[in-house]
Computed example of a mutant assay.
Amino acid sequence: MGLCDGLSHCKLALAFAVMMDLLGGSALLVGVFAKLEINGQDYGDLLVYSGVLLVVASLAGWVLWYSGNIEGLTQKKELGHISTAVDQLARNLSRKIRTYTSHR
């Protein structure tokens, strides 16, 4: 058993979310607590707003990571349902795209 077994799926989304949280949080804190004046212009607000945007962007990574780690959902075939027309259409389209790209 490894150290990251609990993080089994979507490690890239997890790394993205953590990185955006770290960058956003540090930019936010620097923007709030540091005096950033250059030629009479205050750049603290810029760091505060960009930090908030980075933290909000990290939410996408957290949602992707969480939804990628959901286990226990059964497919319709396992439940005994007949596949729907939408499933068949998606499957056929996927096969056509796959065969088209393999013939190139």
Rank of each mutant, 00 (worst) to 15 (best):
M1G: 12
G2F: 06
G2P: 00
G2Y: 02
G2E: 07
C4S: 07
D5H: 08
D5L: 06
L7D: 04
S8F: 01
H9P: 01
C10Y: 06
C10I: 08
L12D: 06
L12G: 04
A15Q: 02
F16N: 05
A17F: 03
D21I: 01
G24Q: 00
G24E: 00
G25F: 06
S26M: 08
L28E: 05
L29N: 09
V30D: 03
F33M: 07
F33G: 04
K35I: 10
L36Q: 08
I38P: 03
N39G: 05
G40W: 07
G40T: 09
G40D: 06
Q41W: 14
Q41N: 14
D42A: 15
G44S: 08
G44K: 06
L46M: 14
L46Y: 11
L47C: 11
V48F: 04
Y49R: 11
S50Q: 11
S50N: 11
G51L: 03
G51Y: 00
G51R: 02
L53G: 11
L54K: 01
L54A: 10
V55I: 09
V55P: 01
V56E: 11
V56T: 15
A57F: 07
L59W: 10
L59V: 13
L59C: 15
A60G: 03
W62K: 00
V63N: 07
L64M: 09
Y66A: 15
Y66C: 10
G68Y: 01
I70F: 00
I70M: 06
L73G: 05
K77T: 13
E78W: 07
L79R: 14
S83Q: 11
S83N: 09
T84R: 09
T84L: 07
A85T: 14
V86S: 15
N92T: 14
S94E: 12
S94A: 13
R95C: 01
R95E: 09
R95N: 10
K96L: 12
R98G: 11
T99H: 13
Y100I: 14
T101Q: 13
S102W: 12
S102K: 13
R104H: 10
